[in-house]
């Protein structure tokens, strides 16, 4: 485990939600999630709203305190760090946020925003302008932008500045929480290419959180699919998308509107994700699942390894793997 940039074990985040005048309920936003990320690797986390993917991001950067589990960065357990010790570790894990209009202080110039990060890194004042220029060119922005305020930049430019700010502290891991979701398609492609280039050059690892499967397929080495606070399927990106095992993953893929598969009528998932404060018994997906069997209503399936790097939390899928025919060679 020592070669992992980031290891998350049994991460659990509960929120207390007030219900009515008296009483409250516990929402298990994240419920025992394991994730591992090697240096220079990209792990994609996919799921719909309420799946807990953004809560994972926020607890990893200590914006939300987890109720259980451990977060290991390199060889240090950072889960319960506080104060100065936490500050020292913060810069090793950075985040690029979804909303390019809110993630930069509107009253600070680009130079000051990046400079703030450089100050955290301990760079002396006289060396900062050069470094700001270097970082801006790293994210393909002209040096002239340094004097501008975020209000004078386009969405794509702001997101590049956010990336530059994250890079300024030389982190091991950058969490991209829907980092390209708010951008126009043509700009999105530019930023995705940029993120890939940066990874190739610096060896930074990405935890890439997105609801957009085609983006994840392009950017991620491995992908974890989440549903109501848990990982339901995990595997190498191309394999997982070519041959999804969990019925939910299949439904997600089928729902992606694609120009190539236009006109082909596909079965769409009925119903909505359950209320995380009141999840169904057994497998949380069973009320929407076209393949649910009796066991699914009673027993919650655990994430089970079914092949090299692949695991799935589904009674039906695991069973078909255990049966001799399909276990021998999962056919394409």
């Amino acid at each position: 485990m020592s070669d992992a940039a980031l290891a998350v074990r049994g991460l659990t985040v509960h929120f207390r939600v007030r219900r009515g005048l008296v009483g409250s309920r516990v929402v298990r936003a994240v419920d025992g999630v394991d994730l591992a990320l090697g240096p220079g690797e990209t792990l994609g986390v996919a799921g719909e709203s309420g799946s807990g993917k953004s809560t994972i991001a926020r607890s990893l950067v200590h914006l939300t305190r987890p109720n259980g589990g451990t977060i290991t960065l390199g060889e240090t357990d950072v889960t319960s760090l506080r104060g100065a010790a936490l500050r020292r570790y913060r810069r090793r894990m950075q985040m690029v946020y979804q909303d390019p209009y809110d993630s930069l202080d509107p009253r600070m110039t680009v130079r000051d925003a990046i400079g703030e990060a450089l100050a955290v890194r301990g760079l002396s004042r006289d060396r900062r302008p050069g470094e700001v220029a270097r970082l801006l060119s790293r994210v393909n922005l002209p040096d002239a932008l340094a004097a501008r305020y975020p209000g004078q930049l386009s969405g794509g430019q702001r997101q590049r500045v956010s990336i530059a700010r994250a890079l300024a502290v030389e982190p091991d891991v950058i969490i991209c929480d829907e980092a390209v979701a708010a951008l126009d398609v043509s700009i999105r492609a530019q930023v995705l290419n940029l993120l890939k280039d940066i990874q190739r050059d610096t060896g930074v690892a990405y935890l890439f959180i997105s609801h957009d499967l085609s983006t994840l397929r392009f950017v991620a080495d491995r992908v974890a699919i989440m549903y109501v606070g848990r990982v339901v399927e995990h595997g190498p990106s191309l394999e997982l998308f070519a041959e999804p095992l969990h019925p939910y993953t299949r439904a997600l893929i089928a729902a992606v509107p694609s120009v190539t598969a236009r006109g082909t009528k596909r079965l769409h998932l009925a119903g909505e994700p359950p209320d995380p404060a009141n999840p169904p018994t057994g497998c949380p997906f069973h009320p929407r699942c076209p393949e649910a069997i009796d066991e699914c209503r009673r027993v919650r399936p655990e994430l089970t390894v079914v092949g090299p790097g692949r695991s799935v939390a589904c009674h039906v899928a695991v069973r078909s793997f255990r049966s001799p025919r399909s276990a021998a060679e999962p056919s394409r």
């Binding site: 794509g156 043509s186 999105r188 995705l192 290419n193 499967l213 085609s214 694609s258």
Partner: peptide
């Protein structure tokens, strides 16, 4: 525009075709 959307099937390009500028 068509080229800059990553596809859900087929080979994975090393880079997405992107439109320069904004």
């Amino acid at each position: 525009l068509l080229a800059s959307v990553p596809s859900m099937g087929g080979d994975l390009p090393e880079r997405l075709a992107s439109i320069p500028g904004s």
